[in-house]
Structure formats: C-alpha cells, structure tokens
Design a protein around this nucleic acid. Sequence first.
DNA 1: TGGCTCTGCGCC
DNA 2: AAAGGGCGCAGAGCCA
Length: 762
Amino acid sequence: MTEQSLLFLGTEADRSYLPYLKPHLKGHKCFIDLRPVSTVAEVEIYAKADHRRVTGVLSTSQQLLSRFANTPDPSLDAYSGSYFKRNGLEYVFLNPLEHAVTVPYGDFLLSRFTSKFVEREKWLRTPDFNWCILTPLNWEKEYATFSSPAVIAIAPDIETFRYNLAIRCIGFTAITSENGTFRTRSIVIPMDSNWALTVARKLADLPAPKIFQNGKYDNSYCLRYNIIFRNWLWDTKTFFNSWYSELPKDLAFLQSFFVREAAYWKDLAESADLETYYLYNAKDTWATACSFLAWMMEAPDWAKKNFLMDFPGVYPRILMEMQGVKRNLPNLEKADKELDVMLEEKRAKLDRMLGVKGFNPNSNKQMPALFKILGCADLGSTDDKSMAKAIFRHPLNARILGTIRGIPKTEIVEKMGIRSMVKMRGTYLKEEKDFNGRWLYAIDPDATDTGRCKSHDHHFWCGAQIQNVPVGKTVKQTIEADGDFYFAECDLEQAETRHTAYITGDENLLAAINSGRDFHALNVQAFFGIPYASVYDDVLKKVLNKVIRNIGKRVNHGANYNMGPDVLVDTMGEEAIYEASRLLKLPSRWTAREIATYLLACFDKAYPTIRSKESGGYHEYIIATVKTTKTLTNALGWTRYCFSDPAKNKQALNAYVATLPQGQNAKALNQSVMKVFYDLAIHPEHSKNFRLVADIHDSIFFQYRAGHEYLADRVKERMEIEIQCKDIKGRTRSFTVPAALKLGKKNEQGELVRAKFWHETE
DNA sequence: TGGCTCTGCGCC
DNA sequence: AAAGGGCGCAGAGCCA
C-alpha cells in the first residue's frame, strides 16, 4: 500500500474529538483543517499544493457536502460514507467526529469509512456501472445478456406511483462472473405499454437467483401485475440485519457501507427529468447488486447462518400482507361513534372543571401548564405514569386528570380516558386506511435488533401495523373472519420466562416453570413467604388472592427486565407499592423507593442466578460473552452483534440481557410459522381451508374454514417444538413451550361459540 | 404545505 | 446520577 496524504476538513465541533480519528488513519499522513470551506476550488488548491499532494479528503462539513449533493440542503447523516470524485480528488463524507463517542457504532463507522482511503484494497473492486433504457430495438440483445449462463444473479428494483399504486419503471442489474471477474449490466423498463409488461414478466421469470432490497415491497406491487419473480433467494436488507442488526438498514446506508465509490443518490428521485429518474432506478439495482457481492465476500459465517434462518420468512409474511383481514364496517362505525360520543362528554366535563374551552390533553404545551397549576410540574412529564403520581397526590388532581387518564387498559368505553379514546380512533378506527374493505399490514422478519418480527403499515401506503392492536372488544370487533371462516389464535404460554429459565439454568426458576402449578402464586410464596395455597387453588384452578398475585407478577416482570427500584415504583404505581408494603407488613416509615428495593431483593433471593452480581450469574455471563466475542448467540442459532459495552452501560446490559430470551422465542416462533406456512397455508390439500393472518411475537393468528377445526390443532402441534438449550454453565436441556389454542368462548350451556370476530378469541 | 422533533401510548 | 427489553404511529407545534 502506498503512503497517502489525506486531508480532514472538519468543523470546530470536531476539535475535541480529533484523537478519535487518529487511530483509524493507520499511520497515513493527514492534514487537519477546521475552518469553514465555501468552494470546491478552494479545497482543490489547498489539497493539490506541492507540499501536500493530498489525494483523499475526509469531511464532516455540511457546507462542503452541499457542493456535491444534488439537493440544496443535504443531510450529513444521509450522506455519511458517501464517496465523490472530482478533478482527480476523492472525497468521503462523515458524520461529526463526536459520533465516535455518542453513538454506539460511531467509532466503528468512522473506521469503516476512513478505510475507503487507508485500506482501499480491502474493498470490493466495484464493477463499472453501465446501463440503458430497454426499447423494442435493443431488448433482444439485452435479453440475451440477461439469460446467459454466465449470469450468477439479477438484482431487480421497481419505482412506483404512490397515488395509484402503479409501477413506473423496473430496473434490473445482471451480475456476470467470468474468470473471477464480476461485471454488471443494468437496464430499465419504463412501464408504459403492454410490451413493457410482457418483457418485464419475461425477465422476472429468468432462472437466475434474484436479489432484492426489501423485496416484499417490490414483490407486492409486481404480484398485482402478475409479474412473478422466479428464484427470489436473496435480500440485502435481510443480509444486513443478519450481520449488524443494530446499524441502520436503509438502502442508502447499505450502499455507503458496502460500496466504496457509492454516493448517496436518493435525491435523484426528485428529478422531473425522466431519463434522470430511470438512471436513479438503474443505480438502485446496481448498488443492490454490489452490496450483495460485498456481503457475500465479507460477511462472517454466523451472519450467513442468520440469513438462512430469516430470509425464508419473507414468503409467509408476504402472503399474510397480501391477504390482510376483513373489516366489518357497521361495527367500525358503531365503535367509532361510541368513542366519539364519550370523548365529547369527557372533553366537556374537563373544560367545565378547568373553566376553559377546548383544553387539549394531547398538547405538549397545555398539559405541562395544567400540571404546573396542579402543583405537579416537578414530575417532569405528563405521561401516564406521571398522571398516576399526580392523581395519588390529591383528590382534586384525581378528579381532573381522571378524565384524561381513565382506567388504564380498560375494555369499557365509559371508563376510558381521553387520551386512549383519541388513540383508538386515530390509529385503529379509520376506515380510509382500509384497502377494498380490508386492513392490510406488513410484517418484516428482518428488522429488529433481537430477531423479532416487526409490523408496520402496508407497502400500498395504507393499513396499520397489526402487532399492537388494543386488547378488548372496541377495536377487535371490527375485524371479521372471511366467509365461512373462523378466527383462532394459538399462544405460546409464558414463553420468554421459560426461555430465561433454560438459558440461565436457574434451578428455582426451572422448578417453578415446570411444576405445573400457577407460576405467579409460586412467586408470591418464594418472594414473600406467603403460602401458595392462600393465593391459588390448584383443585379449582382459581386465583384466591388477586392483589398479592398481581404484585408478584409485576415484581417478576420488573426484575426480568433488570429494572431499578425507581422504575419499579413508576411502573407499579405508588398505590400498588404501598399496598404491597401493607400486605407484607414492611416498616411503615419506608419510602416507595425502599419498598421497591426490598421487592426486587425478594426476587433476587428467590432466583439467585438471574440478576446476581456475584460470580456465575447470568448478567456476568452476558458481560463476559460480549467482551470476548462481541456477539450473543441463542439456542436457535441466531447471533446478534453487540456494539455497546454492557460492563460500562446499564442500558446496553439490559438490552443484551433481554436479547437471548426474546430472540430465542422469536426464532422458535418463526420455525413454527414456516411449518404452518408449508404444511397448511400453501399446502394443496389445506390451503383452501386455512389462512394465515399474522404472527404476533408469541402467537399465531389465523382463520380456518367451518368444518375444518382439525387445522387449528395442527397449528398447535407445529408451535410446540422441542428446543435444545445450553445454559450459561454449559448444561444442555431440552424443553418445549406449551401452546394454548383460543377458538372462541363458552356460552351458558358450556358449548364453544367459535370466533367470528377477533375479540372473540380472547 | 410538508418535513421535522417531541411526547405519548398501543402491543408482546 | 440514574439507568425496564423489543417495536410503530398519531398529534402538536415549530420551521421553512
């Protein structure tokens, strides 16, 4: 590698962080200048001076960036890692150096992007970009290239019109490999004729494996056109989440990460010029192809294993997304009307109490003002927890804030607070979000840090996410099963707690979870010494002491997430904390914080290996594992790369402590979803009588046709899979999380009434 | 008007 | 000093 001379053009804000740049320069000479720059010419004169002979410019200057970007006010963050070459001088833009300290992966990216200059030989030698617009005149020649056996993969990408969901153009980049050299060819089909449609279908049907970036989007649109992509086997978004799940995942970031010479080009999409727009489309496909090559060459085996686990999950998810669920319009209107009436009533009541007109409890200006008047400004927030505290302080507060807060999580509309009602109407009860009478959503198997699926609104710019629909009748009564189908849900029971038990190997937790008895009542006995028999009756299967059982439940929950005492007070609420104190006969002079500290200590005594600071505990194991390997791998074989140091940062510790149980459960459920998909949802014998609706973290929500109840049992069978799990001391056990099928409700005669609406599965 | 941040809240 | 994990989305308010 030849000695290089670099120039860092930063800003004053970078000054105190310059030491973080140095180790990444790998000994190369680097001039530093923090003065404002206004023109490229100025930089060139400075850099090319004989005594400097600078070849590469690293810059955190937004001002300089604006000379390169195609937009008037480009964002440094969007362009970080972007590369430009002008007049023989190369430029790479970076986020402010401060990120090296303030962002967990800041130093990592600083190193990576700096290596575009100091370790250029490590980067994929990018194939040249060459492209054309496909026309009836050139298409045969291009098609011959694309269908040649030398093509190892094809990266397609579509551009769409949002207002009518039409495909505007489709780009394809073919990767060919000859004698170890990769070449690309890119083409764009403007989708403006039947000829274009025919050609697009032909290209999609080619046997070469297809690479998409977030391909569920493209394939959703193409399915409407009957453009069927054969061999969709790769996805760069899934790739990236498989390797560095904590990093950003948008395409622009991916290209700057994988392609040395890539510049952020998304702003070309704003272009009114058609040819520029098609160029943008072609570049998208080319960048996707290059990212694919770079990932294949660079990603470690564990990331590839993650990919193989996650990618097939796109097939059941796209099926769920394209089907959605039916809305029942009369029920939707009824629910909305009911909320509307109650909302107006409560708003009027609140206004009367406050002596004003139109007080808005959702306003971040008005609510703090109200808190100030009520003497609660010290709470620092006006969220639900703070409202609970304010209400606890004084009956007047209770009267006023009660209208805003209502009874949390209640299923009765009359008891709901203003905020909940606004939330329900705005988020879940808007008819205009539906698509031909159906609620659509997206479910991504490749988008979270822990490996869970994530839901959001649909690719067709409608619908809403399906994983946070409020419990209870109000919203769920608007979701109706199709034709002669019924709804059912199958839930994994106590899934994450069971995973925690087998990961930590905590003997007490294992015993509790496997006793077949009521887990929370056992906790009450273990935590507080209150006899199990006074909390739960095993024979009648009945809770005898709801209050104390609930306290046990919440302490368990809090400790599992490694809460501190203050947060436990917040989540439980002072009322419940003092109630616990009374029930457990704790010293009456104790503060809420002291009570919470005691409650958490009770958990630690009962389950000594979970949070224990002593040697051999789970938290210590997490800290040590991340320190030595920077990764955490769960029993299903999914690995998370960890950028933060859990020894130095409690938030990071909490995240990493949670990642194994959460991710392990997620991957187990994913296996079940795959089985249900292949064995039932698309099985020739069953697909007519079975529909997958969604997977929701620890449950599968589906429909079966009347007379085909056995299909529900088959879902349950496929969810109860055996898991081999090695605990932190190296002992392997196998276990199965039990699943519970919810088909409907029993009527007065004790007969099962099957669920026609979603709330009836609860 | 659209885009942005902030706050708050829905779920597991 | 204090620290609950994983998410998406709506409304308010500010700014260009």
